[in-house]
Nucleic acid binder design. Sequence first.
DNA 1: GTCTATACGGAGATAGAC
DNA 2: GTCTATCTCCGTATAGAC
Lengths: 218, 218
Amino acid sequence: MPETGRTTRTTRREQAEARRLQIIDAALNLVAQHGYAGTSTKQIAQEVGITEGLIFHYFPTKAELLIAVARQRMTFLAEALDLLAGLDDLPAHEVLGSIVLGWVEVIQSQADIVTMLLTESQTNAELGGAFRGVVDELAGALSAYLTSRVRAGELRTDLPVRASALMFFSSLMMFFLTNRGLPPEEWRARASRFTGEMLDTWFRGALAPTAGRTAEPA
Amino acid sequence: MPETGRTTRTTRREQAEARRLQIIDAALNLVAQHGYAGTSTKQIAQEVGITEGLIFHYFPTKAELLIAVARQRMTFLAEALDLLAGLDDLPAHEVLGSIVLGWVEVIQSQADIVTMLLTESQTNAELGGAFRGVVDELAGALSAYLTSRVRAGELRTDLPVRASALMFFSSLMMFFLTNRGLPPEEWRARASRFTGEMLDTWFRGALAPTAGRTAEPA
DNA sequence: GTCTATACGGAGATAGAC
DNA sequence: GTCTATCTCCGTATAGAC
């Protein structure tokens, strides 16, 4: 009974899905390098090794392809949030360093989608919303953690948690933008140093321990 | 003696220079909105009210026009540096707030060129260098000021000044990217609040004032 | 599912008249 | 200094064969 015609090991549906992802990956790669408007569908097709027409078999328009890329490859958000999961009871001075370093590593490891989101969000309304959403979610999650540490008595009760979270996140993004390109070892060393110094200052403050100042440093 | 033919009030050279600047301004405006690759020379010409061909009378290629825009309109750098001039002897807790708020206001007031620089620097090598140069100069200048305050005994001697400067600058940039669009009054209120909270935390630190702490938590 | 062929407009850039 | 006209190539997208 020849019914499903399932003679090959991969079904047609699987093949299609694989092709779809191939196109998305090639598009992401090229758009991160040259921008959306600076990347032609022909270039994307060449990168995949297919003809241009096939792209339009999978995506109705080039703009839709961009949205599909964003949807499919925004996994860094979940990865970053995972680094915070279940940490509420651990002291900030023990885990915040690895959270922040972990975040900048996630950003660096997903450089393409981060770059694409940041740059295209300036000219594309839909991605603009996505970008603001990402910032909101990450800052919100970090704020929640910091709040739990305020409640635990580790951090001062009048700490502006959201501003702190935004400061951390902003610094990581700009660190990424100005240091990607570096060879891995040097990047790692700089990232570790920068995040360490940033957190140390944040914990202790910047003022000189002049007698009778601050909160009362001995 | 009919020599220079200077019968009109504006010389031809002045007219040409004015036209050149008109083109640069229109290009900046459109590129900030739609990106370089997303802006056609025809659009720029229409915005100015001239024909496309005239653009190529003033600039050899579209790419050269982009560079000219960057060169001509990067005045915000000087403006930001001016805000720091001659402040070395004034305490950080008195002037840092207005410096930082002033910087974010400069960024916002020159939103077009800042946006263009940030986004196009990701896909254009020449602007990439310019962007890194700007970050370096601003962070360097702020670092120098902070160092002078360390020497003056106001800030702790082991303060990581460059990391602090980068943190401030990064936060201002991300604040700009996520809050431009807001109505002026609300923007101002948020900017003032955010920079205030950021600096307060930076000065005092984040730790709770548990008795006998500060540099070594119980 | 993939390719070939092609429509159609718009892109950057040039030549030459005024 | 400015415009008109035009060249040439490349852009997205579609139709239809296989």
